[in-house]
């Protein structure tokens, strides 16, 4: 499983194309993140519209990305969320941590 990435200007986008609740999906996110991180991108946007479900494992991977960026004054953003994923972000207060990218990128 691979999540597609795209770079537009200073921002890199990662499109999560499956539910984020398994080790395989978590690894796909880590790998996509590493790819753009190693290109020097420090503003990375996750598009989670392809995920209907996220569990603590998936959240853990998202936060790992957040922490790596924060350590280098970078920022992890998310495209506008909906459904269960949005509800989970709100429950865990991640909506306060990860700004929304509502530009038309990707």
């Amino acid at each position: 499983m691979e999540f597609p990435t795209k770079v537009i200007g200073d921002k890199a986008y990662i499109r999560v194309t499956s539910d984020l609740d398994t080790e395989t999906a978590g690894e796909a996110l880590r790998s996509a993140f590493n790819e753009v991180y190693e290109q020097g991108k420090r503003t990375i946007v996750l598009d989670l519209s392809g995920a209907q479900i996220i569990n603590s494992y998936g959240i853990g991977k998202v936060l790992m990305c957040y922490k790596r960026l924060k350590a280098e004054n970078g920022v992890l953003m998310v495209k506008p969320l909906d459904g269960f994923v949005k509800e989970t972000f709100e429950l865990l207060m991640l909506d306060k941590l990860l700004p929304i990218d509502d530009s038309n990128g990707q």
């Binding site: 569990n55 603590s56 959240i59 853990g60 936060l63 790992m64 865990l92 207060m93 991640l94 941590l97």
Partner: peptide
């Protein structure tokens, strides 16, 4: 939310 545990 930043701790790597407790979310489950």
């Amino acid at each position: 939310s930043l701790a790597c545990s407790g979310r489950g």
